[in-house]
Amino acid sequence: MSTFFAYIADNAGAIGIAIAQHIGIVAAALAVAVPIGIASGIALAHARSRAARTAVFYLLGLGQTIPSLALLALAVGLLGVGLLPAVVALLLYAILPIARNACTGVQAVPEATRDAARGLGMTNMQIIRRVELPLARPFIIAGLRTATVVTISSCALASLIGAGGLGDFIFIGISLFKPEAMFAGAIPTAVLALAADWFLGRWAARGHAVR
């Protein structure tokens, strides 16, 4: 235990930087994945053909079965090492839960509500912005929660392709058999994931009991 605290004290600056890098990579991946996920979820919910929707989600689900390590390796093959391939691989991972939840949320809007909105003179864009998105909000936030937690934990692997982050400490710990280094990476990663989950959970619950 004392070696762990000593290690933390000695490496406080480096751990701080790793945390910042970790958050930066996750934020960059989500900044791209969220708009794409929500937009494609809405588009898929409105797709005329049920078969097309099922096919798209099947393919996306298939993509999700590729191990994240393999996806990172694939990204290196295409984009080289460093930050960019890590962000791209992670955002591809994050899109599916966001899109799937947005699609479910929009599909859950009652047909009568949509019919009333159209009959009262809303444009298609207004129906999406004023009716579908607010009503799908709890679903969308649930998707965002899943995506955020998954991205934070998978981001630890990004260290393997030279993107930095808390994974650096975990892999140093593994290769040098220094548990204190491993924990110095793993504990902040877990705390980040839990904190993000708690924060998004609070946001989902806020002011939306009756509405």
Binding site: P110, T113, A116, G121, L135, R211
Partner: peptide, 21 residues
Amino acid sequence: PVELRRGIGYAIQSVGLFPHR
């Protein structure tokens, strides 16, 4: 169509009130 609808009142059986408003 959109402008036409804004000029015509519309009420339906299932009401379709917006639950978030």
